[in-house]
């Protein structure tokens, strides 16, 4: 039960660094550029250059690498799994044979390439969330999406939903823990039984949680209305986003690197 308390959402690590101070839009766009690039290139040297670019950014961000690599852990299984699948399942020149299992040169190359791709992808996105506060991330997403307003993308509404979700995650976690404990005190059992029974045992947690969430939503809506909320129309922003010189330079650097890499490799 205590686990719930220890989950940290929006794993932002506050530091004063060049990366932290970049405009969130620049960070999001740069990440996108790198990710798109990862899927375009096909040579190791390309991954090497992109990988070192991301690694250097991690060093500049002053976020301890252990936090960045922590994000890898849950996905390590997937990386290894894809590597193994490619190692053994690709037809080609056999370089090692163990019984009926054959490792081919093509398989090794393909497997490693895809592993690198996933690896760098995760590092890039971890760095983005580690070095950008949830607030500026939502701000950035809102401003970027508002470009597409003319095709009917509700940029402000999406951002508001993200903000409220972020705000209420800790509250709801706390509440879940409390309801769980209360039902255990009444004799509920969440630890034994088969999967079907366990799922059924969740009802005493889920129903109160939903009922309370609906009541919260209702009260929150009234509070928002009382504070003159009427959607995104005519709204100003407390957090101004300004493109600085460093932002432009960073963006140019990223674009130059990604284009060069994708053209050359």
């Amino acid at each position: 039960m205590r686990i719930l308390r220890n989950i940290s959402f929006g794993q932002y690590i506050p530091r004063d660094s060049l990366i932290h101070n970049l405009d969130p839009r620049i960070k999001i766009l740069s990440c996108l550029a790198i990710i798109v690039n990862l899927f375009l290139i096909t040579k190791f040297s390309g991954y090497l250059i992109l990988g070192s670019f991301v690694l250097i950014s991690i060093i500049i961000s002053k976020v301890h690498p252990k936090f960045v690599f922590r994000g890898l852990r849950p996905l390590l299984f997937i990386i290894i799994f894809t590597l193994i699948i490619h190692l053994f399942m690709t037809e080609g020149e056999v370089i090692y044979q163990l019984g009926f299992l054959k490792i081919t040169r093509e398989g090794l190359v393909k497997g490693l390439l895809i592993s690198f791709r996933l690896f760098i992808l995760i590092l890039t996105t971890s760095l983005l969330t580690l070095a950008t506060s949830p607030i500026s991330l939502t701000d950035g997403i809102e401003r970027l999406l508002s470009v597409f307003k003319f095709i009917g993308i509700p940029a402000h509404e999406i951002a508001m939903m993200m903000t409220i979700a972020l705000r209420f995650i800790p509250t709801l976690l706390e509440e879940t823990e409390k309801i769980m404990k209360a039902q255990i005190s009444r004799g509920a059992d969440f630890e034994s039984g088969n999967i079907f029974n366990r799922a059924k045992n969740l009802i005493p947690i889920l129903i109160p949680l939903f009922v309370n969430a609906f009541r919260r939503a209702d009260e929150l809506a009234i509070a928002m209305e009382a504070k003159c909320y009427r959607g995104g129309e005519g709204r100003t922003h407390y957090r101004e986003l300004k493109i600085k010189k460093t932002d432009i330079l960073t963006f140019i650097l990223t674009i130059v690197i990604t284009i060069t890499v994708s053209v050359m490799f």
């Binding site: 607030i135 972020l166 003159c228």
Partner: peptide, 21 residues
């Protein structure tokens, strides 16, 4: 708990001000 909207104190206080532009 059910009337604070933003994820930091300052942003929450600014919420109403943002609404009236």
């Amino acid at each position: 708990d059910n009337q604070i909207i933003a994820t930091t104190v300052e942003d929450d206080i600014a919420f109403g001000l943002e609404n009236i532009g």
